[in-house]
C-alpha cells in the first residue's frame, strides 16, 4: 500500500500550511536520481580530474601545467555543485542505519541547530528515508542558525512534529506518515 503523509505547519496567527511527505515512489526515484548523479556524473568528473593531472605530470610545459591546474580547479567547483544538488535530491547519509546521525549531518550542512527526539526503537528503512526526506526538505527552507526540534513517534503510523525556534514558538509542524 503506498504511504501517504501530511505535514501541518503554522506560523503564529496563520492557518496551518499543508506540506506533503514524499511518497514511497518519489523516495525511490530521488534515491536513484542521486545515485546516478554520484555514480555517473561526479565519479566521472573525478576520473577526468585524475586524467588531467596525469597529462600535467607528463608535460614539461609549465604553461600547460598552469592551464590544466586551472581546469582542474574549475572541475572541482563543478563537482561541488553536483554534490550540493545530489544532497538536496537525496542526502546520502539517509542510506545508512544511523538515523539520528543522518539527520544531524543534514542539519549540519544547513547550519541549523537540531534537537532530536527519536523513538527508542528503529524505524524501518522506508520510513527512515521518507521521514528523513521530509525533515531534509523542511530544513532546506530555513535560515542558518535556526533552532529546530524534530520529534518522531509511532510504529505503524509514524508521526513527525517539527518545531522551529522552540523557545519562541515561532513555527510548528506535525506530520503523519503511513507505513507502506
Amino acid at each position: 500500500m503506498p504511504g501517504y503523509a501530511l505535514v501541518f505547519s503554522a506560523r503564529e496567527g496563520r492557518l496551518p500550511r499543508l506540506l506533503r511527505v514524499p511518497t514511497s515512489e518519489t523516495t525511490t526515484f530521488r534515491y536513484e536520481l542521486e545515485r546516478r548523479l554520484h555514480d555517473e556524473v561526479a565519479v566521472g568528473m573525478s576520473a577526468i580530474a585524475a586524467q588531467l593531472d596525469l597529462v600535467a605530470v607528463a608535460s614539461a610545459d609549465p604553461d600547460l601545467d598552469d592551464k590544466i591546474g586551472s581546469v582542474r580547479a574549475t572541475l572541482c567547483r563543478v563537482v561541488e555543485h553536483v554534490r550540493d544538488v545530489g544532497k538536496s535530491v537525496f542526502p546520502p547519509v539517509l542510506g545508512g542505519t544511523d538515523f539520528s546521525a543522518a539527520l544531524t549531518a543534514i542539519a549540519d550542512h544547513r547550519d541549523v541547530k537540531l534537537q532530536l527526539d527519536l523513538p527508542s526503537y528503529e524505524l524501518h528503512a522506508q520510513a527512515r528515508a521518507r521521514v528523513g526526506l521530509l525533515v531534509c526538505d523542511h530544513l532546506n527552507t530555513l535560515s542558518p542558525g535556526t533552532v529546530v526540534r524534530v520529534r518522531v513517534r509511532g510504529r505503524r503510523l509514524v508521526r513527525v512534529r517539527i518545531t522551529e525556534n522552540p523557545d519562541h514558538v515561532e513555527h510548528k509542524g506535525r506530520a503523519r506518515v503511513a507505513r507502506p
Binding site: D39, V43, S46, A47, A50, Q51, L54
Partner: peptide, 16 residues
C-alpha cells in the same frame, strides 16, 4: 572502488 573509470585513474596516479 566500484566506479571503473575512477578506479583506472587511481591506478595510473599511483603508478605515476
Amino acid at each position: 572502488e566500484d566506479g571503473a573509470l575512477f578506479r583506472e585513474g587511481l591506478v595510473l596516479l599511483l603508478e605515476a
